[in-house]
Design a protein around this nucleic acid. Sequence first.
DNA 1: AAAGATTGAGTTATCAATCTTC
DNA 2: GAAGATTGATAACTCAATCTTT
Lengths: 159, 159
Amino acid sequence: MDPLAEARRQWEEHGWHDAAPGMAAVTSVVRVQQLLLGEVERRLADFELTFARYELLRLLAFSRAGSLPMGKLGARLQVHPTSVTNAVDRLEAQGFVVREPHPTDGRTTLATLTDSGRDVVERATKVLNDTVFAGVGLSRRETETFLRLLTKVRGELEK
Amino acid sequence: MDPLAEARRQWEEHGWHDAAPGMAAVTSVVRVQQLLLGEVERRLADFELTFARYELLRLLAFSRAGSLPMGKLGARLQVHPTSVTNAVDRLEAQGFVVREPHPTDGRTTLATLTDSGRDVVERATKVLNDTVFAGVGLSRRETETFLRLLTKVRGELEK
DNA sequence: AAAGATTGAGTTATCAATCTTC
DNA sequence: GAAGATTGATAACTCAATCTTT
């Protein structure tokens, strides 16, 4: 018996008809995220990376100089400044990035990709692309619909 | 500029066409979960509950006697045994549940809802139903499609 | 030996407060 | 004073190891 279907059944049974689909959607998103993130992090474990640290490296690798201000990283990844500090601490200890002073603004510090960091992010991307991103269990058409709906929900919540 | 759209653009630009939609889907799910859970927990903060603890109380309130074995809770909520111990520790300190020995099996302990626990979960449910679950930014029809796709992804990942 | 639950160590995220530089 | 980043405290989750009962 599926716990989520059961929860929705209970919601209907209590007469909460207006809220039942939304409850099921929220609970499903939480569960699917847990499963997807788990799968991704299992793959990344070989590289001693979490998804958060992987995303940070990925972003640096996409940038022109392989280097971005801490604040910019937080804005693009949509995480708190503290999380960036934490992640960069860890990545620096692993030798994947280094901290450098900003050339003109003494307040900001730059996180810069090392050769080792560029190497690991390329290898990790290849693995994720092949094992997880290539197939999330939906057809191509379904995936696009799924994305459209996710984007719509996101739009509502971000404004 | 939307960070997620930008990420997908980069993926396509690097020729990772097969993986781009999946990457976007995974990243979107992670982000939407973060936003939805944030919204839910902001509402639950008034009751000093997290979503995990709310779900546990909700499950107990649905049960016949308002009482379930710790292990059963973990199975239904699909979380680790340690998480159940943690959550029940906290809920017990808050006076929302009590631990009781199982009548016949000396190994298992029961988590039992108190009157105060039943009261708080009913009030919290009303707030969540009205403020979050009632509208996740999708039409009724879109919500059902969204749910169908989430269930399909979940099915793939859970097997 | 296996099931049920807990403990303790290690990791990560969040929040308020702080420090430096603009 | 405000922006950028860090520190310290707290909370939550995961994992391996442990303890009790079956």
